[in-house]
Design a protein around this nucleic acid. Sequence first.
DNA 1: TAAATTTGTTAGGTTAGTCTAACTTTAGTA
DNA 2: TACTAAAGTTAGACTAACCTAACAAATTTA
Lengths: 220, 220
Amino acid sequence: MLSYTEENYLKALLMLGLQNEDKPEVGTNDMAAYLGVKPATATDMLKKLKEKDLVTYQKYGKILLTAIGRKKGIAVLRKHRLWETFLYEKLDFSWDEVHEVAEQLEHIQSEKLVNKLEEFLDFPEFDPHGDPIPKANGEIPIVHRILLSEMKENETCRVVAVKDTSALFLQYLERLNVTIGTKITVLEVVDFDGSLNVQIGNAPVRSVSVKFAESLFVKK
Amino acid sequence: MLSYTEENYLKALLMLGLQNEDKPEVGTNDMAAYLGVKPATATDMLKKLKEKDLVTYQKYGKILLTAIGRKKGIAVLRKHRLWETFLYEKLDFSWDEVHEVAEQLEHIQSEKLVNKLEEFLDFPEFDPHGDPIPKANGEIPIVHRILLSEMKENETCRVVAVKDTSALFLQYLERLNVTIGTKITVLEVVDFDGSLNVQIGNAPVRSVSVKFAESLFVKK
DNA sequence: TAAATTTGTTAGGTTAGTCTAACTTTAGTA
DNA sequence: TACTAAAGTTAGACTAACCTAACAAATTTA
Ligand SMILES: [Mn+2]
Ligand SMILES: [Mn+2]
Ligand SMILES: [Mn+2]
Ligand SMILES: [Mn+2]
C-alpha cells in the first residue's frame, strides 16, 4: 500500500516524464519543484521509492519509473482526471476549480469506486482540460496535438487541451471565450516578439502573447 | 485547518456522545477503542485538541466537545453520510460497502464540493443505513426511533435504520430481505432468551436473537 | 582545462501520530 | 473504609515526511 505522499511522487515523476516526450528521465530538482518540496526531501523519498522498486536511479543519476511505479502513477492520474470530469460534468465546477479538489480525491483507495465512477461518467476519454484519461488497463490514449505557438500563418486549428491549468490562465481563456473545441485562425506571426494575431471563433481579430500561444494545445 | 486524524477524533467523540443520549461525555478508552488506537495515543491527541479548543477536559476527567469541536465533527459526519448516499444511489454500491470508502471521502476539503454533492443527490435526509444527514447549518434532524428489542408482543413496526453497520450484519439483513422500510410484526417475545418470533414482510414467521433485535432501529 | 554554476546528497533536526511499559488516579466491591 | 480492578496518564521510542545548512559531483562557460 502506498501512502498519499508516495502516490504524489509517482504521479509527479510520470507527469514530468510525459512532458519530455521521448526522454522520460527526470531530475531531483524538477521533481521537488513540481511537488513544492525541497530537493533534499525529494532525495530522501527517492531512496524509499527505490527500495520499494518503484523507480530506478543511482546517486547523481537520472530517475526513471519502473514498470510497477509507472503503473501506480498512471492509476493515480486516472483517478485524478476521472474526478475532474465528475466535478465538471456532474457538480457544475468550473474548469479552474476542479484540479485542487481532484488533487485530494485522486488518493481515495477503492478499485470499485474508480471503475464505477468511470461507468457513471459514461467512459469519458478526456478530462475538462482536454487531457486523455488513462484506461483501467493502464493505457494512456496518445493524442496528437501541437502548441498554438507552432502554427504557421493562415493556418486554422481547434483547441484540444490546455497546457497550463492554472486558474489564472483558465479564467483568462473564459474571458476570451476559448474552450475545448474553439476554432482559432492564425493570421499573422509578429517577428518582433513572436506574438500572434488570431481570430478566435467569430470574435474580432486580436493579439495573443507567446506565453499564451505556448499554453494551448491545438489540432490542425 | 484540521488534519485527517484530528477529524477522525472529533467525529468519534461526536458519535460516541450521540449514542449516550443525554450524556455526551466520553472516556479515553471508549474513544481509543472506537478509533482502533491505544489509550495512550488518545490521551496525547486529547491534549492537542484541548490546546486547540476543540474539547474541554481535564486529567482523569470526562471529555466533552466544545461548540467548535462539535461543529467540525458534524461537518465530517455530514460528508460521510452524503458520500455514502452518493455511492449507494449513484454508483450501485451495496449498503455494506459504502462505509469503508466514505471513511476516506469524508476528509476531502471543499465546502463547495459537499454542498454541490448534496444538491446533486437532491438533498437526501437519510443515508443508506437510515441515519439522518446533518444539514449545512450543522443541524442534525432528530429521528424518533426505538430498537426492535424494545417492541412488545403483537406490535408492528417498520425498519428505519440499522444500529450495527458491520458488513456481517448488513449482509445477513439482505438475506432476510430486510431493508429500510421493511414491515416487522413481533408475534412473541420468548422469556427464556429474549429472542423474538417475528414476521418480516410476508415471509414465514421466524425467530431472531436479542443481538439481532438490538441492532435494528424501528418506528411503530 | 580550470573556474564557476547548477544539480544533487548528506547530516542533523522537527513534528505528527503511533506504540509499549510503567505508573497514577478513580471507581467498584468486600 | 480499605482493597482491587478499571480507567487514564506519562515516559521514552519509532516512523514518515518535511526542513536547513553544509558539502560533493556534474555540467557549463570562459
Ligand atoms: Mn495529490
Ligand atoms: Mn486536468
Ligand atoms: Mn475517517
Ligand atoms: Mn452510514
